[in-house]
Design a binder for these strands. Structure first.
Lengths: 257, 257
DNA sequence: CGGCCGGTTGAGTACAATCAATTCTGGTGG
DNA sequence: CCACCAGAATTGATTGTACTCAACCGGCCG
């Protein structure tokens, strides 16, 4: 039950901005929230768990005995009712395991091999009742997730498929930049069907939209999991709500007719 | 700057469930989170503010110097970029004023007359750094808002207008029940256009969908702001993803053809 | 009384869902 | 190493739904 020290990690790790502290010009990268001290403290109550691609981590309605903090890999949280809607993708440094009244409110599954810290809720509550600083850091992280959920809702509210996909790609790009990765070639860890369930489109529509963006010269795809933005101006126009057709051919049909 | 005592309120007030404490069979009503002591403490740093219907409370990008806790009335939080998407409606006992790096991340406007506590962030941070218990209560409330945002995303991901509207009505009903109000006649404080911006439909589609639900006998409308669920079974079927057409006429076109 | 605002209704159109056929890709075993 | 297979992804054809544009209604206020 003690965190393995074979990982070159000091313990659970999260990144987020403080909601209230004004910062100098933001770099796009996010600072580590927890102090080394806190991470070491949390490591004591944490265990390290691994999941294979496709493994279920927990199921909606199950007793919520732990929350998780991702070390490496990608996880999806989804509603298994109805049309398997994906509520969020979670990446290294993210925390997941949202519950209410001791019961998980959604299901989670690894979409790549995953290594994570598992933090029993009982022990965590104990820490939280003692350390106001740790509580403050948790608040910062929750605010971050709340903003992320609102961005997701905004994405879902877009009417045009190309706007949804472009926003989704932009989201991945920003994540990658925040981690210090390349900002030109974007890695897409999830498959088309997961993307569809996240952005609210059918699998076929996702595929068509990618193709359309490519043929309009807005993005390039090296393979299914690597995307580059080719025409940044047009791309950002679409993210802001314009459609590929409008952009591609100078306001073709939308203003005429 | 001191909270007026003319209100019969003890101070800021929030309701939510503890994410981790297992509870006895949930009643649907939510418990007060804060102790009288905490509310009194917060009242010291809070001031009471009032807004008229339509007033802007803060604007996206403005310096976030306070968060708000609603005493009475309804507020909408929205992105003013693009197509005025509404991120959330906020009701009495709710908290709003989400920010990042000291700047509001969306705009807020009163859609009815509103009374609220205004809590300066500086003072609040001071409290949070001292009281782990208060921090824990804030965490509970944030988890609540996070679940709410995920429900919103789920609603937006629905493909059929009637499912969106039915889920929206159900959301209002649950809110009203949680406050101990009637569970039969549901009060709808916002106008059609706000509903459209929240559920991701055009004003016209919202209007049509209400009409369609009425003519199918699923709901009744006393006036624009009062709705009753007439056929609960059919209604819940729609909330679960079925369409009014399928329900109204025994799986008409969806399974045939 | 007239104008305005929120809302309703109608006609035509665009876009994504659906269903289905086909290709691509990565993995496995001969 | 290649043939093969299964699942993922693409593409095509058709249909349905919600958007757009536009006219119209009804209450409210000046």
């Amino acid at each position: 039950m003690i965190a393995s020290t074979s990982l070159d990690r000091k313990g659970p790790s999260t990144v987020a901005v403080d909601p209230w502290a004004p910062t100098n010009p933001s770099t796009g990268r996010l600072p580590q929230l927890l102090t080394d001290e806190e991470r070491a403290q949390l490591a004591i109550i944490a265990s390290v768990v691994r999941f294979k691609k496709g493994d279920e981590i927990y199921r909606s309605g199950g007793r919520a005995e732990a929350i998780f903090n991702i070390v490496s890999g990608v996880v999806k949280c989804y509603c298994d009712s109805d049309a398997n809607h994906i509520a969020s993708f979670l990446f290294p440094n993210d925390v997941f395991g949202l519950s209410a009244e001791g019961v998980y409110t959604n299901s989670a599954r690894a979409i790549t091999p995953v290594t994570a810290y598992r933090l029993p809720t009982a022990a965590l509550r104990g820490r939280l009742s003692k350390s106001a600083v740790l509580g403050y850091h948790v608040i910062c992280k929750l605010c971050q997730e709340l903003r992320q959920a609102q961005r997701h809702a905004f994405l879902l509210a877009q009417r045009h498929a190309d706007a949804k996909i472009a926003m989704f790609i932009e989201m991945l790009r920003q994540l990658q930049v925040a981690k210090g990765g390349s900002s030109t070639e974007i890695y897409v860890p999830m498959d088309r069907s997961d993307i569809g369930e996240y952005v609210g489109l059918s699998l076929a529509a996702v595929s068509r939209t990618f193709r359309s963006l490519v043929t309009h010269g807005i993005i390039q795809t090296r393979d299914r999991r690597h995307v580059k933005v080719a025409d940044r101006a047009a791309f950002e126009n679409i993210v802001a709500g314009g459609s590929a057709r409008r952009v591609g051919r100078r306001v073709k049909r939308t203003l005429r007719t």
